[in-house]
Structure formats: structure tokens, C-alpha cells
């Protein structure tokens, strides 16, 4: 009995966390931790060599994810997680490179890198926790803030059209596109697993509560209230055309896997092109010899 108790005494996600950094900085009711929890479980199930899994974050609340995971992890500059990850992946194609960041980081300041990495189909797993606002800086309007929502920089309501992220990802070239919320823990864990196995630019948008800066300002209650909204208003629409996935303030949410297709990755096309053109002069698969 004692042995069995010891075996179960550790939280299964603990092995993926830098426990010496807990408790983390995220607010009570913030959903980022839930997504990390699901991610850790997906890693557990994926049975990857964790020494070869790297997490790259940008700046912001979700940007702190890298620092809490017991993996090789890089907390880069604002918006630039994707190009950093691109360099990592190209110089060592054996790495599984996960970009884990927020909406403002990935599609606000980093939007240019997002579309180009998707276009090139760099083999990255891009996870975007979308809490509709810039949380770390105090709740400013984001490229994802729904029309009409209040933020500190749209005190009379947001008057900018938000991005439809699955549509942006698909039209830019992503091979895997899904959207879930931090309520959909089982589906999200499954989606992480699919993205980890998928070769090419994979994108998962996760809607997540920001109780402190988005919900409170918009009088939407706490994190739990937002989770209940996700539960009640989400409709699973696997394979739905991504142009139909735009979000409105507290409106219905389409969730599911929308895109799962095959396209050659950046390194595959690069190697194919160089091998064809240079023939014997090509010194080998790019990425394999780049390291010293």
C-alpha cells in the first residue's frame, strides 16, 4: 500500500513544471495555468523525448509559460517568439519546437512573423492563449478584443474589428488549425497531442479568461463565470469554414478542429529544391550540418 501511495503521490504534471517557481504569477481564475496543465498532460501522453522538446514564449502573461515548464525554454522578446523558434528549428530539425504565447504577442506585435512562418510552413506548434486583452500591461485593447468591449485604451468600447485567428492561420498556410477554450480541457489536451504529432505549422487558439483585466472591466464576473460562458456558448463545429469563426462580445463560439491538411514543410521544400538544383554539390540536408 505504501508503495502505491508513493507512486500516486506526485501530481502527474509535476514532472513538467519547474516546481521551485510555484506558485506562478497568474491571477486567481486566469485560464493560462489550465492550458499549461492540459499541455503537460499531452506531453505525458505523447511519449516524446522531452530533452528534445523546446518551448519558446514571447512577452506577456502567457509569455511566462516557458519559464514554468521543465523543458528547454526561451522567454524571448515581445512578438518575436516565432522567428526565434524558426532559427531553433532550422538549426536543429530534431527538436520539437512549441511556441506558447498570447494573442497580443503572437498576432499583435508579432503578426508579421505569424503569417510568414505559416506561409513557409515551418514545423512549429503555435499555441495562442487568447484572453481578448493585453493582460500584463493592464488591460489594453488587443487585435482580438471584441467590438464594443471595454479596455483601458478603449474606455468607450472597442471600435476595431478583431482578428478571426483560425481564418488568419488557415489563409496564411497553417496545416493544423483548432480552437478550444480553457473549459474544453479534454479536447484541448487531445488537440495538443495532435499538434505535437503533426508536421508543419500547427495553430491552436485557446480562449481563456482574464478575470482581472478583461472580465472585471466588462462586468463579466470572475474567471469561473467566463468558464461558464465558454461552456454554455461553445458549439463544436469540426471542419467549419474558418471564415465563419469570427467572435463577438459574449456571443457564440465555434470550437473544434477546422484544418488538418498536408503541405511540405519549409525544410522539406528547401532540401528538395537544393538537392535538385545543386545535385552532388549540395552538402546535405539543411539543418543537419548547421550545428557545430
Amino acid at each position: 500500500m505504501t508503495a502505491r501511495t508513493d507512486a500516486v503521490a506526485a501530481n502527474p504534471v509535476e514532472a513538467f513544471l519547474r516546481s521551485d517557481r510555484m506558485p506562478h504569477i497568474w491571477c486567481p481564475g486566469c485560464g493560462i495555468g489550465t492550458t499549461v496543465n492540459c499541455f503537460a498532460r499531452a506531453l505525458l501522453q505523447a511519449k516524446l523525448n522531452l530533452d528534445r522538446v523546446v518551448v519558446v514564449s514571447g512577452i506577456g502573461c502567457t509569455g511566462r509559460v516557458a519559464g514554468y515548464l521543465e523543458l528547454d525554454s526561451f522567454h524571448t522578446t515581445h512578438g518575436r517568439a516565432i522567428p526565434f523558434a524558426t532559427g531553433l528549428k532550422l538549426a536543429n530539425p530534431e527538436l520539437t519546437v512549441v511556441v506558447y504565447s498570447g494573442d497580443g504577442d503572437l498576432v499583435g506585435i508579432g503578426g508579421n512573423h505569424f503569417i510568414h512562418a505559416a506561409r513557409r510552413n515551418v514545423d512549429l506548434k503555435v499555441i495562442c492563449v487568447n484572453n481578448f486583452t493585453y493582460g500584463m500591461t493592464g488591460g489594453q485593447v488587443a487585435p482580438t478584443t471584441p467590438l464594443g468591449a471595454l479596455s483601458t485604451t478603449t474606455p468607450y468600447g472597442c471600435f476595431e474589428q478583431p482578428f478571426n485567428l483560425p481564418q488568419l492561420a488557415e489563409s496564411s498556410g497553417a496545416v493544423y488549425v483548432a480552437r478550444w477554450t480553457s473549459y474544453h480541457v479534454r479536447q484541448l489536451t487531445h488537440a495538443f497531442g495532435e499538434a505535437l504529432r503533426k508536421k508543419g505549422f500547427s495553430f491552436i487558439e485557446i480562449l481563456s479568461p482574464c478575470p482581472t483585466l478583461y472580465e472585471r472591466r466588462n462586468r463579466l464576473g470572475d474567471g469561473l463565470e467566463m468558464m461558464k460562458y465558454f461552456k454554455e456558448q461553445s458549439l463544436v463545429r469540426h471542419g467549419a469554414p474558418t471564415k465563419e469563426l469570427g467572435l463577438t462580445f459574449q456571443g457564440p463560439i465555434a470550437v473544434g478542429k477546422f484544418v488538418d491538411r498536408e503541405r511540405p514543410t519549409f525544410l522539406e521544400t528547401l532540401n528538395q529544391q537544393l538537392a535538385r538544383t545543386l545535385e552532388a554539390q549540395y552538402a546535405g540536408c539543411a539543418g543537419e550540418h548547421v550545428r557545430d
Binding site: M1, R4, V13, E14, T34, N37, S182, G223
Partner: peptide, 24 residues
């Protein structure tokens, strides 16, 4: 355990156990 954003709770299923013998 999946929902907890703070990694503070989890549950374990007990398989093939006689009644009332939850692990200490």
C-alpha cells in the same frame, strides 16, 4: 486536475480495489 490552473489538485482512479481501501 485538468482544470486546475495552479497545479494544486488532482485525482487518481482506484482500480481493482476491495471496498473501503483507499490508499493512505
Amino acid at each position: 486536475g485538468l482544470y486546475c490552473p495552479d497545479f494544486a489538485i488532482y485525482a487518481v482512479m482506484i482500480k481493482n480495489e476491495p471496498e473501503d481501501t483507499r490508499p493512505p
